[in-house]
Nucleic acid binder design. Sequence first.
DNA 1: CAGCCGTGGAA
DNA 2: TTTCCAAGGCT
Length: 351
Amino acid sequence: MFHGDDGPSHNKVSSVLLSWYASNKRVLPWRDPQGLPTDPYRVWISEIMLQQTTVPTVRGYFERFISRWPSVQDLAKASLDDVLHEWQGLGYYSRAKNLHKCAVMIVEAFDGTFQTAEKDFLSLPGVGPYTAAAIQSIAFNSPSTVVDGNVERVIARLFSLKTPLPQAKAEIHKLAGHIRSEEEPSNYAQALMDLGSSVCTPKAPKCVICPLEKFCSAKKHNPESFPIRQKKKEKPTRRGIFYFIQDDKGRVLLEKRPLSGGLFSGLMALPSEGWDTTDDDPVTRLKIKNIKPLPEKVRHVFTHFSLIAEVRYAESTIAEGVWVFPEALSNYALPTLMKKIFKLTLPETVE
DNA sequence: CAGCCGTGGAA
DNA sequence: TTTCCAAGGCT
């Protein structure tokens, strides 16, 4: 399994890594400054927020979220709309829906206490293999193999893995499990991820200061070329039309996006057509008339496509939907795309 | 498995 | 401007 005497030996790797972490530990809002165990609730919230999201982005969201709902009981009592409002701009909005659902489940089915078994976390919506392992080790200091994007990169480089991602995931998990020790599981998991994010970076890794340099197979060659990834498919461009409809009092027509799934699930948005997977025809449905296009187009990039949004001023007299005064827009959970549009149509009102 | 699901920062 | 990808999970 290991590459002879030059390959990574797990006890050496973990001890070197733990001592590196002891003097390079970053202060983060969800991390106890003294290294004491952190409230599992805080670990859980932070791990959900950190899914595919960077530390600088999460920081502010985490602080606001925790001060508003300091415990899982508080979160369970909150309304989903309030949770989504606190989540607006963070993206992947199903995370907020699942978070709220989990809080209710934990209070009702788990009697308000976090379970200490990884399989219990895995049964929760929005908690997958990474997050379950992270909570297990970080919050309960119990050994578990934590593999995120950082760990994938570190492992791929340590062993110069030729198998491309995502095919290599199983192999990486196996190697990560062999490398890790069962000492200080909480510190070890965070140390490996910190190393990946600050030293063993995707571009221009700082091998000179890396504590694992002497164990690393890729260091001699081209560390930046690992992990090898499958070619990504080209991102298509879609065009959509968004109707900015005001009544005679200046109120804007918003509609709630279906909670069942899709883009911006559960958030408020302008009526639109032509860009998402629905076949909605708002012009007919809302009896839209007097359509006047806005010359500027709004560009927005999603994970799997780019959007060119055309905005059209229009009128409607229907009673359905939610008519909102511009000053009251901040009371609603709005995706970033809507904020971009309102910056053009309501420049005085939007931050 | 591959497509879906947001956004922003870095280079 | 473009490209990458970040403490992933669900279907």
